[in-house]
Design a binder for these strands. Sequence first.
DNA 1: AAAACGCACAACCGCGAAGGC
DNA 2: CGCCTTCGCGGTTGTGCGTTT
Length: 224
Amino acid sequence: MQKNPRGVRKGTWTKEEDILLMECIDKYGEGKWHQVPLKAGLNRCRKSCRLRWLNYLRPNIKRGCFSKDEVDLIVRLHKLLGNKWSLIAGRIPGRTANDVKNFWNTHVGKNLGVDGERRKKNVMNTKNSKETNIIRPRARTFNGLHVTWPREHGKNDAFSNVRITSTTENLDYEKQKPFHNNVASTPEEVDESIRWWSNLLETTEDELENLFEDVQQTGKMSEW
DNA sequence: AAAACGCACAACCGCGAAGGC
DNA sequence: CGCCTTCGCGGTTGTGCGTTT
């Protein structure tokens, strides 16, 4: 087990450390991460504690294979949000941003033709990915505004928990939005907004089937 | 049987955002 | 308004384990 120059523990967490962290959060609650190492008696940095809690110790975290529905949702949300793993994970109960990110990088990315050396280069060259048509919305606040999020039939509201905070920055996202910064008010605007969102969320059945077959072959998703 | 390789995932790092003073 | 601290996120690396040779 390595330590950094200031003697803070790094590397894999032990059961004892997990227990200390859980007990601490159980006692004091989440947040105030800078105090957690001290209160828990852990020789870990706050970041490490936070990450461990969020990714592994939090209640209701789901481990194991991704279901078909989950993959479907990830693909669609990634198409919509890009690499906003925390937002995507927020829509998939029990999954963490790290889980989703790892799954995407090891399975889905591959199946989209980004594999081996090419994948490595693409990962390194993230600037290039920003030049694609991925919509990268910034978190926004719409004070006093309503935002109409289209729903997919038979699915949970995929957007109700999207964090919306404010910024005044102009973005490509804004330019693409048919009902820029406000609610669609006329029937035409509503239709246009629905078409816009539908287009973003559209992933053909063929695309998904191909993905599922490939992923299944790699052995990750066994329980469809 | 063991070394080499590849994959999956846990963990770390760096940076930007947010908030307090 | 600027500085400082803390938080949270995405990208990247490290490590362990299974598979192949």
